[in-house]
Write a protein that binds this DNA or RNA. Sequence first.
DNA 1: ATGAAACATGAACCACTATTCATATTAATG
DNA 2: CATTAATATGAATAGTGGTTCATGTTTCAT
Lengths: 201, 201
Amino acid sequence: MEATASPKTANPKTPRGEATRRAILKAAETVIGTQGFNDASIIDITREAGVAQGTFYIYFKSKDEVFSELVREMGRLLRQALNAATAGARDRLTAEKEGLRGFLSFVSAHPNLYRIIQEALFVDPGAYRAYFQTFADGYRQALAEAQDAGEIRPGDPDVRAWALMGIAKTLGERAVVWGDETPIDAVVEAAHDMIVNGLRR
Amino acid sequence: MEATASPKTANPKTPRGEATRRAILKAAETVIGTQGFNDASIIDITREAGVAQGTFYIYFKSKDEVFSELVREMGRLLRQALNAATAGARDRLTAEKEGLRGFLSFVSAHPNLYRIIQEALFVDPGAYRAYFQTFADGYRQALAEAQDAGEIRPGDPDVRAWALMGIAKTLGERAVVWGDETPIDAVVEAAHDMIVNGLRR
DNA sequence: ATGAAACATGAACCACTATTCATATTAATG
DNA sequence: CATTAATATGAATAGTGGTTCATGTTTCAT
């Protein structure tokens, strides 16, 4: 019930505290990403970070809060990676291809963050929803514009946005969770061919 | 270390015990599907089933075991639903369409089972993997055959199988988890158009 | 009826872990 | 130096919930 700022994290900081906070956050990513939210104890996280248990609560209000922070971080980093990947694309279909490649590269490089997002559906549904809604909204708009510009075949941009996110998400899971070895470029080529041309002969 | 049968469930049964077991399983589906695995306590499940706590352990070795059972059940039911949905399909593309419709109908009717599958990645990775692998294998084979028969455009059946599963999975999530109201038929039409024709103008 | 097997009960056990707190330690200011 | 705010510690607290078990109750073949 504070009037001024945010009563949320309660932990702005100063010099070395910043480093400690980061160490804890990184440790949380590793431990939670590896063991899952419930099996990851504060003991595990602080041990991994090399600090005492109590130190955790100087920087985070609760176990749930670190988790939410990790979900938001994943969103930020991924958005950034996708923007970079699609920056030079001339048209929508090229952007689609480079976006998929960027996504698969990103999740392969950040398997822990990827698992955390999937678990967010149960640990922090609000954050999970926000994460996907943000991507879905941008995606739908891009598809709608491309359609208006006559770049792509007309069709429901909303359903398409989710369908395309689904392709990326699942191929990412195949690579990260199941350790599929197919080179990213080969996956991208095959998936993109289907996205562009469909299955029709 | 039993030689004969399976030392697993340890709970074959008889007359009314069958009913009790089913009641517990159904209660577990409701409670776990609604609250998630970790927030669902044995107390909650047995209360929902109308039995005492101890009764649970007559029929299941542990909390994890009911969960695994639910995952397997979901696989069985879904496989059955998909077979029924695609039984009359003349060609692969029609099967694709009816399969998608069948899937979305099924998950809309069984939202709890759907959430349980998603959570299985963390609670019971082995069961989760088995579930998807089974579908992926069948899917890949169907696509490969259609391709050999010249019914569809050539392309990597493995990547395609996962991509198509991803579309279904994510559209299902959109409907079940986010409560999207778009009629299933409209979603199917839009998605299937993209699957068949692609995005190319 | 009666004895045994199956089924059911719920209180108690036990282990685990998120969070708190009183007490150091560090760092930087004046 | 002395003072203080920030940072760090780790033992203690407190609540939870999966699992066990000694004890009933039901069912049914004989």
